[in-house]
Amino acid sequence: MNSNRLFNILVPLISVLIGLFAGALIMLGFGYNPITGYVALWNGAFGDLYYFGETIRQVTPYILTGLAVAFAFRTGLFNIGAEGQVIVGWLAAVWVGTTIEAPMYIHLPLAIIAAAAAGALWGFIPGLLKATRGVHEVIITIMLNYTALYSANAIVRNVLSDNEDKTPDVAATASLASEWFQNMTFFSRMHYGIFIALFAAVIMWFLIERTTIGYELKSVGFNQHASKYAGMSVKRNIILSMVIAGAFAGMAGSMEGLGTFGYMSVQSGFNNLGFDGIAVALLGANTALGVVLAALLFGTLKVGALNMPTEAGVPTELVDIIIALIIFFVASSYIIRWVILRFKKEEK
């Protein structure tokens, strides 16, 4: 048991290190200094308070989308649809934020709940189809991503604005933006959402580890047939899992809508929050704490990478390759697991 836990910590750590190392090799190969490259990455993420604030800003939705994917994984479901759930959540939050007038203690929670509900609905559809008709959730969620993207664009353009590119800003009573954080971090877009994201991680941990519902969800994930034999409703648990996962992703959308941007613009493509959430969940081994740490890493990479071309002269394309390599090694942690196991066996 003890070595198993060590294992779960070691594997992601080694993957990240190998990824960074491979990235360094690539930079060397193209004649760039990997050390100045990584120093630029570090400075771009934590170099001063502004970048620190931006990193936290990026980490916030990553935690939530990571949770969304991880939660569904626990029930044996692959939620590719976090992307679409983010978009509908963003839309719902901005919709409530721009059209309703209410004092802050009602307005803000209402906007976030609306986002969670919209995301939950977007998770409910594949959950229902999977449970009742056995349609694979990967296909449905991928298709729903596009449905969400284009419907949201049409609504932003035609309903929430007068044929413009973006909605008006959300009312101050629904905004997560924090003047205090902004002043402290030289006008970064860091907002109060980080507390909501961390709180959501605690909720996920509590649900999964400490409640009967969580026990049932996990059990369905391990073995559907055994769970059914034990008298649990597999269908109910599949739907429930997707709904909760969708709610997390929807809240990630509200972080963007109420915190980072304060509006929703017409999206020309996916913003990858949901897809990156898959990598975050994988790296975080589908646990709440793991997701928070992995989200921190991804946020750092994402924001820090912007600084690499300007400070270290590493071209943007190479930066993309390096980030992709790190993700690749994270995703291939299976290989690392296998190597370590071999290592162990030989010793015996």
């Binding site: 502004y50 931006e54 941007f261 999206q267 913003n271 912007l306």
Partner: peptide, 12 residues
């Protein structure tokens, strides 16, 4: 690379 990068880039 995305709409959210404009501000950090300008700031940089």
């Amino acid at each position: 690379n995305s709409d959210s990068d404009y501000l950090p880039n300008l700031n940089t």
